[in-house]
Simulated scan of single mutants.
Amino acid sequence: MNAFATANRQSLHFFSAAQILGDLAVASGNYDQAIRYYTALAQAPTAEMKIESEYLVGEANLRQGKLPEAEASLAKVIGASIQSPQGLRLQALAKAGQAVVWAKQGQGEKALEQVNSLVGTLDPVDSALAARIYNAQGACFEALGDQEGAVLAYLHTHLMFSSQADAHAESLSRLIDLWPQVGNADRAVQARQELQQRYPGRLK
């Protein structure tokens, strides 16, 4: 597939191939390579794919802790002038990601306010978006030192949106750390067992 993407940059299938390669690079922890593939999506003919390029680059930077770079990309998505359902969905995802950036930068209250506005309007049928939003809410509560609130947020993803593998693995990983802090070490053991069974590569 890598050879196809390199040799067929003018093909209609190039952009989908580039995104798949970027996703594979993220899954293997090679974020710089993922960003190179995602950046190529900015050359796509549609506005939605152009802002998806920015969103994916922002998320890849967030995963590796490059917070200023992540926020810069996510802010471009949020500020884009677009009204299509796909574009608005990407903006909601970007707002969730931006809230995580703010939480990691010590701006927990500002981050939580933004996430709560997303929770108030989310469509539970869109499980991928909902899982991202609840995980972002968990990160905000953690930043504020509210472990019980964080547990409840991550439990939303764990119990309601476990079909979303990446977000579900993240919620389990955080619950492993949080359950003992709220006096429930047994639940942490259960979360660890499930994470190991379902997502063995994600267990630290």
Rank of each mutant, 00 (worst) to 15 (best):
V26K: 11
I51A: 01
Q91A: 00
L112N: 10
L74W: 05
Q83V: 12
A80E: 12
I78G: 04
N30R: 15
E52K: 12
L118I: 00
A96R: 02
K76H: 04
A17V: 09
I51C: 01
R89G: 00
G108Q: 06
Q43R: 14
V26I: 15
L62W: 09
E109G: 11
L56R: 15
G58T: 08
L67T: 08
E71C: 08
L12A: 13
I35P: 11
E69M: 09
Q43N: 14
G29S: 13
Y31V: 09
Q64N: 10
K66T: 08
V115N: 01
F15V: 07
G65R: 06
E48D: 15
L67E: 07
S73I: 03
A34Q: 09
A40T: 11
L21F: 06
A103W: 11
A27K: 15
A99C: 08
R9W: 05
L88P: 01
K50E: 02
A47W: 00
A96E: 02
P85T: 03
L62K: 09
S11L: 09
V26D: 10
N30G: 06
P68F: 05
I51V: 08
K110V: 12
H13A: 14
S117G: 07
A40E: 14
K76G: 02
T46A: 02
L90D: 00
G106A: 09
V101M: 10
L90Q: 00
G58I: 07
A44H: 06
L90W: 00
